[in-house]
């Protein structure tokens, strides 16, 4: 008997499982998967768009991210060039092939070099576009793929994430709905990084330090909204 059968038989014996299609347990389980119950949604994030943007900013800052707002995508290159100067970083960025990022007027920042593709670990600063933001906890959701390679989220010193104001949800569950809509029900990108603030560790004497293995700094640019 294979390990699988042995484990399954033990479980099925305890649970009095049957193979019948209409076994109420089977029916209950597939109903739950087809129509995921909503659960308890904290009231905190259930706000209008402006409220969500404000809460998102506050919570992200509490988690040690920095946040700025711009009125449109056209402003992003200029603001990022300023971010690099302010932090004494080289005028170099890396990003994926996300159209929303690529169509920004990078050429206007003459000194800025923009590289495209996944990171090999040598990039100081990378830029990604988030699928969504979550106001409740100041969290970003980033889907893997050519548009926004996962390595860009984890390897740089400074990670810059652009998020559209209208994609800032009140709670994680609403973000999951966006995901289902985008990729299809039951289908996921290879990796979904759900990120709240820059990397940290408290493993040495419980002292909290930023920049463990992931980025030391997380900078968020909210596009649109008030």
């Amino acid at each position: 008997m294979s390990g699988r059968d042995a484990i399954m038989n033990r479980i099925r014996n305890v649970l009095n499982a049957t193979d019948a299609e209409d076994d109420p347990r089977r029916v209950a389980a597939s109903a739950r998967i087809d129509f995921p119950p909503r659960g308890v949604i904290p009231a905190r994030g259930q706000l209008g768009l402006d409220g969500r943007i404000k809460l998102f900013k506050k919570m992200a800052e509490t988690a040690a991210a920095t946040v700025e707002k711009v009125s449109g995508p056209g402003e992003v290159p200029k603001r990022l060039a300023a971010y690099l100067r302010k932090h004494n970083l080289g005028a170099k960025l890396r990003m994926g092939s996300d159209k929303r990022l690529r169509s920004m007027p990078w050429a206007e920042e003459r000194a800025l070099q923009v590289a495209i593709g996944p990171s090999d670990g040598s990039d100081e600063v990378t830029v990604s576009h988030a699928l969504a933001g979550i106001a409740e906890t100041g969290t970003l959701a980033l889907a893997s793929g050519r548009d926004n390679p996962t390595t860009l989220n984890l390897l740089p010193e400074h990670h810059i994430v652009v998020v559209n104001a209208k994609d800032i949800t009140g709670d994680m569950e609403t973000m999951l709905d966006m995901l289902r809509e985008r990729f299809g029900k039951g289908v996921m990108p290879r990796t979904l990084n759900v990120i709240t603030g820059p990397s940290r560790s408290a493993d040495i004497e419980q002292t909290l330090l930023l920049g463990a293995h992931g980025p030391r700094a997380l900078h968020i640019v909210i596009v649109g909204g008030k």
Partner: peptide, 10 residues
């Protein structure tokens, strides 16, 4: 409030 990285792999 939330851990820094929640990573979903499929």
């Amino acid at each position: 409030e939330a851990s820094v990285y929640t990573t979903l792999s499929t």
